[in-house]
């Protein structure tokens, strides 16, 4: 296995009596887009803060490119860019001045820092408002500015905590495209997000964390392979007649019509039959099948499975 970009071994963080991250051991691969998933309070942000040298692990260790972030944070930051969940800036500074200042702290000369600041502002779509004070920007613009600051010094590893939070749909698509561009350049990107379809679309590797424990990790393909949902949504040109027909199928547990869509829930053992029967029923009854898709994405299925399994184990 190639050398991982980030390696954690028994990483544990405890605040007085509460253990937020518990013996987390994982290898985040180099040059890939990795996703950190988990419900609220799972310990994702705490793990990220330990990776970026903000907080000290209570036990265990974390290495970024072979360096300890707590002891050598400034060296780690030469190759690492971090976008916090709520990026904070100096409200009285203009966007261009803030990024020039940050560029100078990254070791650039004044002219290089200003040039690079303009470049990244254009890249995140804030070029036209470079002279606006940060305090007067919207939450979405601040988020984009935070992203610009993260990529300012061209780090090889990017850790993005909820990168699309506060963004409108257009902004979200824009930032996701940027992440794809950076991934195509071979950068190591770690994304923590609640938005599973985004993670599924963009990530090659994923780790699911819950209550500080690593539940599952691995390549996206291997994880979602053979993971099928048993809830389906069907759209035809004659929904009422189609609903009657599918209700006659013995293995269909639940079928109902809601807002013009037919929802089906079937037994897992008969999934393959359903895939054969739906087009057959439509063809035989001369109903035009317009769409037939699972209700949840495969990653969502995996996520609900592992989180649910943990819950059942605890019970």
């Amino acid at each position: 296995m190639p050398e991982p970009a980030i390696r954690t071994r028994d990483l544990t963080k405890r605040y007085s009596q509460v253990t937020v991250v518990y013996h987390l051991t994982m290898d985040i691969p180099k040059g890939k887009v990795s996703g950190l998933l988990g419900p609220n309070g799972a310990g994702k942000s705490t793990t990220i803060k330990m990776m970026t040298g903000r907080i000290r692990p209570t036990f265990g260790n974390v290495e970024v490119d072979g360096l300890n972030p707590w002891k050598q944070r400034h060296k780690v930051m030469e190759t690492l860019g971090y976008l916090p969940e709520r990026p904070t800036h100096y409200p009285d500074m203009t966007a261009i001045r803030f990024l020039t200042y940050m560029g100078r702290l990254a070791g650039m000369s004044r002219s290089d820092a200003r040039k690079r600041a303009r470049e990244v502002l254009h890249l995140v779509g804030l070029g036209r408002i470079e002279a606006r004070k940060i305090g007067q920007m919207s939450a979405g613009q601040k988020q984009r500015l935070g992203f610009a600051n993260t990529i300012l010094h061209e780090p090889e590893i990017l850790i993005l905590d909820e990168p699309t939070a506060n963004l409108d749909p257009a902004g979200r698509i824009y930032v996701m495209r940027l992440i794809e561009q950076l991934a195509a350049e071979g950068k190591t990107i770690v994304i923590s997000s609640h938005i599973l379809p985004e993670i599924e679309r963009i990530c090659n590797w994923v780790a699911i964390i819950s209550e500080g424990n690593l539940l599952v990790s691995g390549n996206m393909g291997a994880l979602i392979k053979n993971k099928f949902d048993n809830h389906y949504v069907v759209q035809t040109n004659d929904q009422e007649r189609f609903l009657q027909l599918v209700r006659d199928l013995s293995y269909v547990g639940e079928a109902y019509l809601e807002e013009g869509l037919v929802y089906l829930c079937v037994d897992f053992d008969h999934l393959f039959e359903l895939w054969d029967d739906i087009p057959r029923i439509a063809t035989e009854s001369k109903i035009r099948l317009q769409s037939f898709r699972p209700l949840r994405d495969p990653l969502e299925t995996v996520f609900i499975d592992v989180i649910g399994q943990k819950g059942r184990e605890e019970v």
Binding site: T52, G53, R54, R73, H74, K75, M77, E78, G81, Y82, P84, R86, P87, T88, H89, Y90, M102, L105, A106, G107, N149, T150, H153
Partner: peptide, 14 residues
């Protein structure tokens, strides 16, 4: 208090 130390800590400075 303003949470801006994160911005400084995000750059390679000691």
């Amino acid at each position: 208090e303003r949470d801006t130390l994160h911005a400084l800590y995000g750059k390679p400075i000691t």
